[in-house]
Design a protein around this nucleic acid. Structure first.
Ligand SMILES: [Mn+2]
Ligand SMILES: [Mn+2]
Ligand SMILES: [Zn+2]
Ligand SMILES: [Zn+2]
Lengths: 142, 142
DNA sequence: TATCAATTTAGAATTAATCTAAATGAAAGA
DNA sequence: TCTTTCATTTAGATTAATTCTAAATTGATA
């Protein structure tokens, strides 16, 4: 009997056709903690799958995001970054190289009604800023 | 004797020339809690100051940001938003209309070394998500 | 195997933001 | 007040991320 990949599982669960392009993108994203941009994903997947279109990457990311299988991060001002880990967690971004790292810790972020400005709050996300191990050595220019 | 505006004070402090365009932009930003985009600022200031260039808005925002007199927020995925309140505080964004509101409350966000992934952490910012008073009524579509 | 809607694709279009180079003008000194 | 200079403004071109379009392809179903 054939093994069923996690990529296949996700497509079946979401009612999406199993195309080779999707398999490649989902395969690349599975367990990926690098928070890649659309271009990053395109570059990586194109290597194994020449002829693939950047539009397909955007299409696939849109489907996954819509179905709640992918987070779109706005932490990098230059471009959107994507995260296949949809569990609630926070992020740390290097101000130099823009590397994004996970912070797996829960915080108590209760806000009294008096400070909610009438909003109904549904979620939160903490952005931590700093310098990654590779960049903090080059502290000369700061 | 002439009154000195806050806009003038800021330009003098930063060593910037007092141009009418800058005065208008700084005047618009002073005390503004709407977290406007560059286009928002351009639209508002153009009304009182026709002929103004959008490039001047971007130039002025860049100077202010560089000198630490303005925060650039990446909370809105579509465009950068600006905040003349540079004191540390957090934000609440309406998922419908993208209105951004302040959260003036301090949180204890200590992270043990073991979870820092080798990063040197210099700051943080919490994004709260939800629905503003105007939008939460229209909860039909959710 | 035939059918058809979903998907992929290349390229055009959109949009936020940056860059360029020429014209302008604020400010400092004569 | 007049000159000079360099920061600033400006329109328009450019870049880069993302979205859109419409035609070709293909996975799934019968
Ligand atoms: Mn993550
Ligand atoms: Mn604010
Ligand atoms: Zn780094
Ligand atoms: Zn709203």
């Amino acid at each position: 009997m054939k093994e069923k990949t996690k990529a296949q599982d996700i497509c079946e669960e979401l009612g999406l056709k199993l195309t080779p392009q999707r398999m490649a993108i989902l395969g690349y994203l599975d367990g990926n903690t690098s928070h890649p941009s659309a271009e990053d994903i395109f570059a990586a997947v194109s290597r194994r799958f020449p002829g693939m279109s950047l539009a397909t990457v955007y299409n696939t990311l849109a489907s996954l995001k819509e179905k709640g299988k992918l987070l779109e991060l706005t932490i990098d001002p230059a471009k959107k970054r994507y995260d296949p880990d949809t569990r609630p967690h926070h992020h740390l971004i290097c101000l130099d190289c823009k590397r994004v790292s996970d912070i797996d810790r829960a915080f108590d972020l209760e806000i009294p009604d008096s400070l909610r400005n009438g909003f109904q709050i549904t979620g939160n996300h903490i952005e931590f800023y700093g310098y990654c191990p590779e960049c903090k050595g080059a502290a000369v220019k700061r």
